[in-house]
Amino acid sequence: MATLIKPGPPDPSKSSIESNLFTNTRPLWHPPGARGIYGGAVIAQCLSAAQRTVPENFTVHSMHCYFVLAGNADIPIIYHVERVREGKSFATRTVQARQRGKPIFTTTMSFVRENSGGKQLVEHASEMPDIAGPVDEEQDLRSPQGSDGPFQSQRIDILNHDSASPHEKKTRQWVKARGRISPSGGHQAHLSALAYMSDSYFIGTVARVHRLWRYAAPRNADGSKATAMIDDDVVKKLRSMDDDTLARMQGMDADVIDEVRKLKLDNNNNNDGDAKASTAAAAPRPEVGMMVSLDHTIYFHNPREFRADEWLFTEMESPWAGDGRGLVFQRIFTREGKLVASCVQEGVVRLKQPADSKL
């Protein structure tokens, strides 16, 4: 993140001009098959830009975002910070991310002055569920953005996965930033990293609790989306891989991999595994036709009491889906069980429609 307008040396005879324009210095990640850049990157960079315009003793406590247009990874993004309010206890910032002169993302953030709540406080917090800690062995980690991606994750089995009610299921994972965040970034760097990771598999929770097919669609030579297919040959190839190789696969939906693992287990217990694989591959199962985020909200609860480069536990659930949209709630805890953030996201979740259907 770099400012576009660098302030000159102070001149007491002139009024100060504050720098409110920022841009990214590196291309942002475009997930395979996605309509645009990874939303968490824009969220994090908007937060980073806004944090540079508030006093050091002010910390973000809420962030309300809207995804307007798909971002292009090949074009720099201009982040314009508007200083909406400067209060004694609270400050408000609005950031608009623009490409080609058009807004692709907008967010409003509220910052609170540290220790402004007084000596006597009203306090309570949800407790972290009793869950096994992360396994630190490298082979058990996922790198959603490739081996050089900025964060790592470790999936945990979906709670109540066999329930017939999607709203009863909870998807869970451990996440952390790769490597060690430099002390020079201060607490702001950890907040930006958490904001970045908060978008990981977020609206995808709806697809997972409904057990929808979801995997990156291939592209034709002209860049258009090709027909997404998974056939017997693909399933057989996946079944031939060991679990470590499956865990490292990029761009393949976790539920597809889970299904393959189940097929492998069936094959170990039944010599008719190939028939089962063929049946599973051909069985009619709803497929995601479109899934994009519409909005994203983060409430930061203990913004200076966690490290994003240490394991954080996330739990997501979807209380509702309908009318082509889905809603997901997320809670983020430290490994020690402290609730550090609550997030909400709504997104478009449309099924692939039959060829003869008309909307």
Rank of each mutant, 00 (worst) to 15 (best):
N72S: 07
G347R: 05
I17E: 06
S184N: 13
A281D: 00
G322V: 05
A73L: 07
A228T: 14
K352V: 02
E317N: 13
P166R: 07
P10V: 07
V348Y: 11
K14V: 03
G251Q: 01
L212T: 04
H187V: 05
P134D: 05
T334E: 11
L141C: 10
V122F: 12
Y215P: 00
E18S: 15
L191A: 10
D244Y: 12
H296V: 10
F67G: 01
F90W: 11
L263C: 11
P76L: 07
P31V: 08
F333C: 02
R261D: 01
D243A: 11
A254D: 12
A34P: 06
I104S: 04
Q330W: 00
N115Y: 05
V122Q: 14
R239F: 00
E138M: 10
I131D: 06
D258G: 09
N20F: 02
T25Q: 12
G36V: 07
M197Y: 02
G251L: 02
V292C: 03
F105M: 05
V60E: 02
A280G: 07
A2M: 09
Q188P: 00
P76E: 01
Y196W: 11
M316C: 13
D356S: 11
K102L: 10
I298L: 04
P12Q: 10
I230E: 10
A164D: 13
D11Y: 08
R52K: 15
E336K: 14
A195G: 10
N269F: 14
Q99R: 03
E82F: 11
L263G: 03
S224K: 04
L359F: 12
S192K: 05
P55K: 08
S126L: 08
S165E: 15
G118N: 09
S198N: 04
I37A: 08
I104T: 07
D199L: 01
G204C: 06
L246R: 03
N220C: 07
H124W: 07
R325V: 06
K88N: 15
L263Y: 08
V206N: 02
S182R: 08
A283F: 08
H187W: 10
D162T: 12
A189M: 06
D243S: 13
N269R: 15
Q139S: 14
D140K: 14
E56I: 09
L212C: 04
H161E: 15
M241Y: 09
N57F: 03
T205V: 04
R113G: 03
N115T: 08
G347H: 04
W174T: 02
A221Y: 10
I298S: 01
W320D: 06
P10S: 12
E315T: 08
V209P: 00
W174M: 05
G251W: 02
E305T: 05
R285I: 05
A132Q: 13
K276M: 13
D255W: 14
E56M: 06
R85V: 05
L28F: 08
D232R: 15
E317L: 00
D231L: 11
I17N: 12
I78H: 09
P286Y: 13
R178D: 13
M241P: 05
F22C: 01
A226V: 02
K264I: 09
V340Y: 00
G322P: 04
R35H: 09
I332G: 02
Q353E: 11
R98Y: 08
K170M: 12
P134T: 03
T106I: 12
Y196R: 06
F202I: 01
I131G: 02
H80T: 10
Q353H: 03
V260N: 01
G33M: 09
I181A: 03
I131A: 05
E310G: 07
M1W: 09
I104V: 07
